[in-house]
Simulated assay, not measured.
Amino acid sequence: MHDPNCLFCKIIAGQIPSKKVYEDEGIFAFHDIHPWAPVHFLMLPKLHLPSMAQVTMEHAGLLGRMLALAPQLALEQGCNPYPEGGFRVMVNTGRDGGQEVHHLHIHVIGGPRPWLKG
């Protein structure tokens, strides 16, 4: 499912440029245009899901793959290894949760501190 009015769907489709981190048949990752930290990228399902509020057990495999991929991509993008290093995984959901683009996305944030936020 694709939403022709969704900013992230347009990025996934290549209609809007991005600095790609990773892509496979179901996942797309790219650098945040306003990074909070030295490493800050977004991981999205290619399937248009507005938020975590719409996730069902049907999506468990996809989200599991995204979370399992996050450590590898974090290291590749410059995060230091655990336990001295590390990264943050964050999902904003809805207006009260700080979500700005209504396409489910996972922020992966890390690198040496201090960060701009957090």
Score class of each variant (00 low, 15 high):
residue 70 A to D: 08
residue 82 Y to A: 14
residue 42 L to P: 00
residue 20 K to G: 08
residue 24 D to M: 11
residue 106 I to W: 01
residue 75 L to N: 05
residue 101 V to L: 06
residue 77 Q to T: 06
residue 96 D to V: 07
residue 69 L to H: 03
residue 74 A to L: 09
residue 36 W to R: 12
residue 84 E to A: 15
residue 88 R to Y: 14
residue 103 H to L: 13
residue 60 A to K: 10
residue 17 P to M: 02
residue 106 I to T: 08
residue 82 Y to I: 12
residue 79 C to G: 07
residue 18 S to P: 00
residue 48 H to R: 04
residue 80 N to G: 12
residue 92 N to W: 04
residue 85 G to L: 15
residue 27 I to S: 08
residue 15 Q to S: 14
residue 102 H to M: 13
residue 50 P to Y: 03
residue 13 A to C: 02
residue 81 P to W: 11
residue 7 L to E: 13
residue 60 A to E: 13
residue 3 D to L: 03
residue 114 P to Y: 03
residue 99 Q to A: 05
residue 7 L to V: 15
residue 24 D to C: 10
residue 25 E to S: 13
residue 81 P to I: 12
residue 58 E to N: 02
residue 70 A to V: 05
residue 49 L to G: 07
residue 81 P to K: 12
residue 59 H to V: 10
residue 7 L to A: 14
residue 66 M to D: 06
residue 102 H to N: 11
residue 70 A to I: 04
residue 36 W to D: 15
residue 75 L to T: 04
residue 12 I to N: 01
residue 110 G to Y: 05
residue 75 L to A: 14
residue 7 L to G: 06
residue 113 R to F: 03
residue 103 H to N: 10
residue 11 I to D: 08
residue 23 E to I: 04
residue 75 L to P: 00
residue 68 A to H: 08
residue 33 I to S: 14
residue 70 A to C: 08
residue 15 Q to W: 00
residue 57 M to C: 04
residue 63 L to N: 05
residue 24 D to A: 11
residue 74 A to N: 06
residue 90 M to P: 00
residue 34 H to Q: 15
residue 68 A to Q: 13
residue 26 G to N: 15
residue 75 L to G: 13
residue 8 F to L: 11
residue 26 G to E: 15
residue 87 F to R: 02
residue 34 H to L: 15
residue 60 A to D: 12
residue 43 M to D: 05
residue 106 I to H: 00
residue 118 G to F: 11
residue 33 I to G: 06
residue 39 V to W: 04
residue 35 P to D: 15
residue 86 G to D: 11
residue 7 L to W: 01
residue 48 H to S: 09
residue 56 T to Y: 01
residue 55 V to D: 05
residue 44 L to D: 00
residue 80 N to H: 07
residue 108 V to K: 04
residue 102 H to F: 14
residue 53 A to E: 14
residue 74 A to E: 09
